[in-house]
Amino acid sequence: MKIARYQSAAGPERLGIVTSAAGEEWLVDVAKAASHRGHAGAPTTVMGLIEGGAAAMDATLDLLAWTAARQDPIWMDDPAAVQWLTPVPERSMFCAGRNFGRHKLESMKSDTASSSQLHSDFPTGFIKLGRTLMPNKSRVARPADVTHFDYEVEIALVLGKAMDAQSTIDPASAIFGYTIFNDLSAREWQLREMQNGMIMLGKNFPGFGPIGPYILTADEVPDPQALVLWLKVNGELRQHSDCRDLIFGFAEMVAFWSRLGLVPGDLISTGTPEGVALHHKPNPHEWYLKPGDRVEAGVEGIGVLETFIV
């Protein structure tokens, strides 16, 4: 199931489920469909679906089967005409660093990184502030004091269950689904911070977290390591990989970050594959993002996250 959180004329937050009609992609407005069916049961928000567990999912699937038999446009929205929201409301986000093997290698070859800064036996990372997250088709401003403005396509998992250090559940079972994330980065700030052993400002300027547009539920991803991700700038392919190159997999990251106490809706990202502007040889400057650029981050099976740099 592909899930969207968006705004339309029907209200400020809609739960949409992707469906096909006449060969085109549409969003079933769950609240509208449930109202026309005439009985409650299906959740009407993304968090209601996540926190409602198996009962909420079953009710939603039952409603979708009912809508599929009728194909009434009254409860369908055109994805091209909606105003996107972030896949979940503002939540904590834990971002992996140098977690793709080939990206780690390109970092080690760079003059900007030393082996002492690279993790070994456990994940490394940083926090992305919830308020930096931006929905699909957002316009993101390059800060006035930033010229080394970089892209990083990633996959973000969405937690479906609470977990902490004492949890005994299988970490993989805590994953509700997967979405697309572009970890925008101010490299001149990030590299200065890393000399102090931290990363914060360079990753958290306003708008530095495009995410979406859809969540693909975990039941439709039998092998997360097979997920393929890519990024284009103005139509030019810059990054392309699959998750078999991950150093720490999805379940490993859930288990590690659970020490902080995770709740439904929290986000954990994979880190990015090779191909970032920072490590482009011989001159990265022409590869950094500039006002007027259009960035597409994609994951096969999920969709395309589009961002405009201004």
Results as ranks from 00 to 15, higher is better:
residue 2 K to L: 10
residue 4 A to K: 04
residue 5 R to G: 10
residue 5 R to M: 00
residue 6 Y to N: 08
residue 6 Y to F: 14
residue 14 R to G: 02
residue 17 I to W: 09
residue 17 I to G: 11
residue 20 S to L: 11
residue 20 S to R: 06
residue 21 A to H: 10
residue 22 A to Y: 00
residue 23 G to K: 12
residue 23 G to A: 04
residue 30 V to F: 00
residue 35 S to V: 14
residue 39 H to S: 02
residue 39 H to D: 13
residue 43 P to E: 13
residue 48 G to C: 03
residue 48 G to N: 07
residue 49 L to Q: 07
residue 52 G to L: 04
residue 59 A to K: 10
residue 61 L to G: 14
residue 68 A to M: 13
residue 70 R to C: 03
residue 70 R to M: 12
residue 77 D to M: 06
residue 86 T to E: 04
residue 87 P to W: 03
residue 89 P to F: 08
residue 94 F to I: 12
residue 96 A to E: 10
residue 99 N to D: 07
residue 104 K to D: 01
residue 109 K to M: 07
residue 112 T to S: 14
residue 112 T to F: 15
residue 119 H to T: 00
residue 119 H to V: 02
residue 120 S to H: 11
residue 126 F to D: 04
residue 127 I to Q: 11
residue 131 R to H: 01
residue 136 N to W: 00
residue 137 K to G: 01
residue 144 A to P: 00
residue 145 D to Y: 02
residue 146 V to H: 14
residue 150 D to H: 10
residue 167 S to R: 04
residue 171 P to D: 05
residue 171 P to E: 02
residue 173 S to W: 15
residue 187 R to N: 07
residue 189 W to L: 14
residue 190 Q to I: 02
residue 191 L to Q: 08
residue 201 L to I: 12
residue 201 L to G: 04
residue 208 F to I: 01
residue 213 P to D: 06
residue 217 T to N: 06
residue 219 D to M: 05
residue 222 P to N: 09
residue 225 Q to L: 08
residue 226 A to E: 14
residue 228 V to P: 06
residue 229 L to M: 14
residue 233 V to K: 08
residue 234 N to M: 12
residue 234 N to D: 15
residue 237 L to A: 05
residue 245 D to A: 10
residue 250 F to M: 14
residue 254 V to K: 09
residue 257 W to Y: 10
residue 262 L to G: 05
residue 269 S to C: 11
residue 269 S to G: 07
residue 270 T to K: 08
residue 272 T to G: 09
residue 273 P to A: 09
residue 278 L to C: 08
residue 285 H to A: 03
residue 286 E to D: 10
residue 289 L to N: 03
residue 291 P to R: 05
residue 293 D to I: 14
residue 293 D to A: 14
residue 297 A to V: 08
residue 298 G to V: 05
residue 309 I to D: 00
